[in-house]
Design a protein around this nucleic acid. Structure first.
Length: 789
DNA sequence: TGCTCTAAGCTTTTT
DNA sequence: GCTTAGAGCA
């Protein structure tokens, strides 16, 4: 399967620049590659793997390559497959979660998991948390399910079990209690959430020495993509598999600190510096040659990002020439901005740029509406990224819930989702009775239907009979037949047939059947599945030596380490559906203008890019202004946005903008002052600071001191930030009942003590000392403070 | 029990 | 300004 050494490796290395070549052919030492935007990072990663295999330095089974998204993993596999005739499916190339899943499927018993455990996605986790909060009889006002869910996920990302969490006050003590109860519930139901996949894998490696040693020996080459996005737990997991200083193993981390935009979900840019230090990286390789954009665009990006203090340091360069200047436009309103973008985009399209090469980027999803309506009214095809994904659609989730119940009758989340859908006359009362019975006996809902008396009990037993009946009837059927049987038996399709907007939903259910069909084909579950030979180095692989037919395919289908049993196609498909929520883009096919947030644009590139709404408070976002780190992340976000453009870049902002039903008056973003002047071309007259119209009025009002200095509803403190405009006056205050020294509760910051009270009416404000979040100034007109006695 | 109406929310997102 | 989720009503 590997070409003879000699000519092939040199062919692989053709066309690489010196830095890329150095990265690809690194000896087996720990290495950190700082890969700038558009510097050929994926090419380096895949070429290195191909080179390692081709020169015989690694076998396919000895490579571990980990990414964040399924898309990146697939891309790597595809490119690798194109470079080498290698059975890429046997290789451990995948997402962090996908690989952890694969690992846990093989070692479920050692990990203390249920065999065939199912995976909760974020919305499943949320409903599970809701149930826990209800069962504990807690106030949902005080323990907001979303926040609790977020808290649990956050703990796991930090590698913390309930016992590890720092308890500061009553609120956090209770949160930890919920966390523990949630864990118990997951255990009972045989399900794990995303964080659990990571954490469980980490703990198993940490606590089981033979297993750890085995995998360390097995993976001679470890590669990590987008290292700047790793969180604490992922880095710890990596150190378990590839510890610093281990002989005979190479670790390659690739990342770009300037493109770190996921701190809000636990990413630690600091992992890059830690990696360099802990692994004693001899030389950091910088990929600064950019193959994407023209000079002015890169200069703008370089100039902007140089205002960040915390950087490893890097400057993009190109040989493509300066190209066109970056165009800047000021608009009077968001509506005018949309209108202008529309016309300019049309003009671009008329002069030959495909619509799919035109991207409209924005900071937050709410901004897409006005752009969409302008495009829609003009009849211009467009595509919005970031909506509901296929497996997240309600009807698809309903269908999946039935399928999950076939696999695992004790999955209470799924049980509750469909017990009365389509309606079967099982109401809230009956379900409550059932839940009480289940709680009393510590059993699952399905196991407790016998304990509910009367008509309600009969109906509940009828539902369980339906599920059991389907389970029996679908024995031995193909996945496609199972799903079709389920859709008919449960009445899901019939239900949507009578629904007025049901046609789309039925189509989605049909699409589910197709998705299952292609999953079966791709993963080799079909009757004529061919076992792929897997080249195992040393033959000591725990995960596959006990496996009779070496059918190691995609992530979901890892065979059990002890029995060699391969998951059923249904179980594998359900896992697939949880780990890969599917495409999140609307109507594919026709040539359409691309609309997306800057976050979702990361990793993509377009001939022409419009960055819209570049205004203070929006970009940088007001909720990021409270600390320097927040502003630096916003700046990186802008850097990511700018570097998406190949040939032409537009930056636009607007004086007014409709947001949350109110007209906001904005000033242009500070980022305009940080981009080198020579790269910019102002299509509208350049405003010098606070120049005219609203801005002057606003400034004068501000100088008179009528602004609310540093007081924002969420409690952020930032005197340097532009204050809310005076005409968006706050409503009357509710200072009544507050006094200095009083303990109050804030939904975001928890409990705190009032240290200062100032002002009256709309100006009333309080300084509150919160345990975890420190001292905050809060406008009483906006912030909700509940006195605690 | 099912449907309609009102109230709350609202930065960014992958798995 | 618009969507979603839960409470109240028929």
């Amino acid at each position: 399967m590997i070409d003879a050494p000699g000519s092939a490796p040199s062919r692989l290395l053709q066309g690489l620049n010196p830095e890329q070549l150095a990265a690809v052919t690194l000896p087996a030492v720990p290495a950190l590659v700082l890969a700038g935007a558009g510097s050929g990072k994926t090419r380096v990663l895949t070429t290195r793997i191909a080179w390692l295999l081709n020169t015989g330095q690694a076998s396919p089974g000895g490579v571990l390559a980990v990414t964040f998204t399924n898309k990146a993993a697939k891309e790597m596999l595809t490119r690798l497959g194109a470079m080498l005739p290698v059975a890429v499916r046997g290789m451990w190339i995948g997402t962090f979660h996908g690989l952890c899943n694969r690992f846990l499927r093989a070692h479920w018993k050692l990990a203390g998991l249920a065999q065939g455990f199912q995976i909760l996605d974020s919305s499943d986790q949320l409903s599970a948390v809701k149930r826990v909060i209800k069962a504990m009889n807690l106030d949902e006002e005080r323990f907001v399910p979303k926040q609790v869910s977020w808290f649990i996920a956050g703990c796991k990302e930090e590698g913390e079990r309930p016992r590890d969490v720092d308890v500061r006050d009553e609120q956090s003590r209770k949160l930890v209690e919920i966390y523990q109860a949630y864990q118990d519930q997951c255990e009972r139901e045989g399900v794990v959430d995303f964080g659990e996949l990571m954490l469980r894998s980490y703990e198993l490696l940490r606590d089981n020495e033979p297993l750890r040693e085995h995998y360390r020996r097995r993976f001679s080459h470890v590669l990590v993509d987008e290292f700047q996005d790793t969180n604490k737990l992922q880095y710890a997991w990596l150190k378990m598999l590839a510890p610093p200083g281990l002989m005979g193993q190479s670790v390659l981390a690739v990342g770009d600190d300037d493109q770190s935009i996921y701190a809000f979900r636990g990413a630690r840019v600091g992992n890059m510096a830690d990696f360099e230090r802990e692994y004693r990286v001899p030389r950091v390789i910088k990929l600064e040659q950019n193959y994407r954009s023209f000079g002015h665009i890169l200069d703008a990006a370089n100039g902007l990002i140089s205002h960040n203090a915390q950087r490893l340091g890097k400057n993009l360069r190109t040989e493509a020439g300066v190209g066109e200047p970056v165009r800047v436009v000021e608009n009077t309103s968001d509506y005018a901005e949309a209108q202008w973008l529309l016309e300019e985009a049309q003009q671009l399209h008329r002069s030959g740029t495909p619509r799919s090469e035109i991207a409209l980027l924005y900071r937050s999803n709410a901004q897409s509406r006005v752009l969409e309506s302008a495009l829609f009214n003009a009849g211009v095809p467009y595509r919005v990224y970031g909506g509901l994904r296929f497996f997240e659609r309600a009807e698809v989730k309903h269908a999946l819930a039935y399928l999950r119940l076939l696999e695992n009758a004790n999955d209470d989340t799924s049980f509750l989702r469909v017990v009365n859908f389509p309606t079967r006359g099982i109401g809230a009362r009956s379900i409550e009775q059932l839940q009480d019975a289940a709680r009393a006996s510590g059993r699952s809902l399905a196991q407790s239907v016998g304990a509910v008396p009367g008509k309600a009990g009969e109906k509940l037993r009828g539902f369980v009979d339906l599920i059991d009946g389907m389970r029996t009837a679908t024995q031995g059927l193909t996945l496609r037949e199972i799903i079709e049987h389920m859709l008919a038996q449960t009445g899901l399709v019939d239900f949507y047939r009578t629904d007025k907007e049901g046609q789309d939903r039925i189509e989605n259910l049909e699409e589910l059947v197709n998705a299952a069909e292609s999953f079966v084909t791709q993963e080799g579950f079909g009757k004529d599945a061919v076992a792929l030979p897997v080249d195992e180095q040393g033959g000591g692989d725990v995960a596959s030596t006990a496996t009779a037919p070496a059918l190691i395919t995609g992530d979901p289908a890892a065979p059990d380490a002890e029995t060699g049993e391969i998951m059923s196609p249904l179980a594998a498909f359900l896992t697939h559906a949880s780990l890969e929520a599917g495409d999140n883009q609307a109507q594919a096919g026709q040539d359409a203008i691309q609309l997306m947030t800057v976050h979702s644009a990361k990793g993509l590139e377009f001939d022409a890019v419009f960055i819209t709404g570049i205004e203070e408070g929006l970009f940088p976002h007001e909720q990021s202004l409270s600390d320097a780190d927040g502003v630096e992340e916003e700046r990186r976000l802008m850097y990511v946005a700018i570097t998406r453009a190949r040939k032409r870049l537009y930056l636009s902002f607007s004086q007014t903008r409709m947001l949350h039903g109110q007209t906001r008056y904005n000033v242009k973003s500070r980022f305009f002052d940080e981009i080198p002047e020579h790269t910019l071309k102002w299509l509208t007259p350049r405003q010098q600071g606070f120049g005219s119209g609203y801005a002057r009025e606003y400034q004068q009002a501000w100088q008179r001191g009528s602004g609310l200095s540093g007081i924002v509803g969420a409690g952020r403190v930032e005197p340097a930030a532009p204050p809310p405009p005076p005409f968006v006056a706050a409503a009357a205050g509710q200072a009544a009942g507050l006094r200095v020294g009083q303990t109050v509760f804030h939904t975001k910051f928890g409990e705190g003590i009032v240290t200062t009270l100032e002002g009256r009416g709309a100006d009333a404000r309080a300084q509150v000392q919160f345990g975890r979040h420190g001292s905050k100034w809060l406008s009483l007109a906006i912030a909700k403070l509940t006195p605690v006695d």
